[in-house]
Amino acid sequence: MKHSFTETIKQILIDEFEEKADLIYSYCLLLQYINLKTSSAERGSKARSSFGNLYAIYVLVEDYINKGFNINETYKNYEGAKFSALFRRQRELPFGEKLQNHALNDRVNGEFRKFFPTCENIPIIRDVSRKRYWINENLLICNFENQTYNIAESIIKIINQYIEVKQNKFEDLIKQCEQIKNLHTADQYQATNFVFELLAPNVDARLFEIVSYSILKYYYNEQVIYFGFELENIQEENLKLYKTGRTNANDGGIDFVMKPLGRFFQVTETTDVRKYFLDIDKIQRYPITFVIKSDIHVEELKRRIKEKAEEQYYITTIVKQYMDAIEEIINLPILIERFEEAVEKGYLSLVLDEIIKQSKVEFNYDEE
């Protein structure tokens, strides 16, 4: 696979290995895997970044270099890096503050096998009982023409360059968002189109969740509910939507919660309905609203969910329990309609403010 960042990878290899660069790239599957994971480099901040898998490789290779194994042949006797140290280092890297342990534990190896099914090596070796980890040195060393080439330092340079590109793209997004926020009413069309672009299919899943939250927060903002514990003391309160934490967090399937109704919202980009059942089960089949990054009509989505539920669970009463747990489905057309309603109410600037605020928190953006 060749993309715009591939040339950067090749140039780093040329700087390191000169005329052997192309041969080393064709021989080293780990470089080819990194090439696949950096395809979003020039597609802007909205495209998937794959930092989790890249950083799992990065911290292990960094540990390998820091201990001098790239210049000696004693790595096979190394006791392994501690998981806690690797995990902490991942979170110190740009955009890595809230990364979880999936990439280090299995995600990298599983995906590598998918891309290179005939390869006998996997990138990450681990001793689960002792929580010790190694990069597979067989994937770092290339032997041909009676020469040995180690790509460890090149991998660090490649990922560092990718980080720099993504940081620059994200800063451009923030600046663009802030500029559009300050547009006059006459430029509202441009501002709304900008938000529509943030809902496109190639948008990073985290950014889609942020934009969905920002839209729905102000869509519900003026809706009022009356409630109370006594008939003579009924309170009036606006609906308020709260984001429960970082995106992709292990929070039991609750991305947003609404006060005072206690509604749960789960944002998803998958149309694999088995994931919906998992989310429903995680919260004990409490009613949940799904915000789905899909243009498929809501009724068709419901039909597919019910069909899969009947196939998987068969029993009518159980199928009904799952279907009853789906309080509402909000697809992309509905989300756009709700954004347009929020804009009509004068909330465009506040929606953009919220996108900026949540993006800076999510992507660990430092103003300095």
Rank of each mutant, 00 (worst) to 15 (best):
L207N: 01
H297Q: 13
E232L: 09
Y218S: 06
Y220H: 10
T289M: 07
E236S: 08
R206E: 08
E236H: 02
T270I: 05
D281Y: 11
K275H: 11
P260R: 13
S214A: 15
F265R: 07
Q284W: 02
Y213G: 09
L239I: 11
G252P: 07
P260K: 11
N202H: 15
F194V: 06
V195I: 15
D204S: 05
K275M: 10
Y242P: 03
I234W: 01
D295G: 00
F208C: 02
R263M: 09
E230W: 06
D281E: 12
Y276W: 15
I288K: 09
Y242M: 09
K282M: 12
K259W: 14
F229P: 00
R274V: 04
Q284H: 12
F227H: 13
K282L: 14
G252F: 07
G228H: 01
L241A: 00
D204P: 06
V211S: 09
F194N: 07
F256Q: 02
K240N: 11
E232D: 15
V298D: 03
A200Y: 08
A249N: 12
L241G: 02
L278G: 00
F256L: 09
K240C: 01
Y276Q: 03
N202Y: 14
D295H: 00
Y220Q: 03
L231T: 11
F227M: 01
D295E: 15
I288A: 00
Y276K: 00
I283H: 14
I292A: 04
S214M: 07
K259I: 06
Y276V: 01
Y218E: 00
K259R: 14
T244Q: 13
N250P: 05
H297A: 13
I215G: 07
P201M: 04
L241W: 03
K243R: 15
L216Y: 04
F277H: 04
K217N: 12
T268V: 11
E197M: 03
D281G: 04
V291S: 00
F229C: 02
Y226M: 06
D251W: 01
L199R: 13
Q188C: 06
F290H: 05
S212C: 08
K240L: 11
K217L: 06
F256D: 02
Y218T: 00
L216E: 02
S214K: 12
G253M: 08
S294G: 04
Q190G: 01
D251G: 10
S214N: 08
N238F: 12
Y242E: 10
V195L: 15
V291P: 06
P201G: 05
E236N: 08
V195N: 08
V224I: 15
V203H: 01
F196W: 10
N250M: 06
T271K: 10
L278H: 05
A191H: 01
L199G: 09
F264L: 15
F194D: 00
E230I: 04
I296E: 14
D281V: 11
Y213D: 02
L278T: 08
E236R: 14
